[in-house]
Design a protein around this nucleic acid. Structure first.
Length: 103
DNA sequence: CGAATGACCAAGC
DNA sequence: GGCTTGGCCATTC
């Protein structure tokens, strides 16, 4: 059920994904990492599955820069200026977002 | 509680 | 870079 809303571990993921600015992207591993691996990358996917429209889930891609969701994600990213490479993968080395608690 | 699945990652070949 | 195996956590039946 989507009753995980509120104090669930998903709230953390949503909070992070929402912190991702336009034109940037993050990997499941990073989100799980900044959460001190409290939840695994796979679980991060679950958080995005039921994520509300307030969460830019399209700014989350795999470690290889691949969009597991499909063209839907690429289309959204393109609207923000994040265009994929010729191989169809995102250039993490250029769009990877580095979250920071301070500064 | 047990088994299976998932928008995954890391390591080895 | 692609394929296979093991691990991780959450959800579902």
């Amino acid at each position: 059920m989507v009753s995980s809303r509120g104090t669930g571990p998903f709230a953390r993921v949503h909070h992070i994904v929402r912190s991702i600015p336009a034109g940037r992207v993050m990997t499941y591993g990073q989100i799980s990492e900044i959460l001190d691996r409290r939840i695994s990358a796979a679980a991060v996917g679950w958080a995005l599955r039921q994520c509300p429209d307030d969460v830019p889930w399209h700014r989350v891609v795999a470690s290889t820069g691949r969009c597991s969701v499909g063209e839907r994600q690429l289309a959204r990213l393109a609207r923000e200026g994040v265009h994929p490479r010729k191989n169809g993968c995102i250039d993490l080395d250029a769009h990877r977002h580095h979250p920071r608690s301070e500064g």
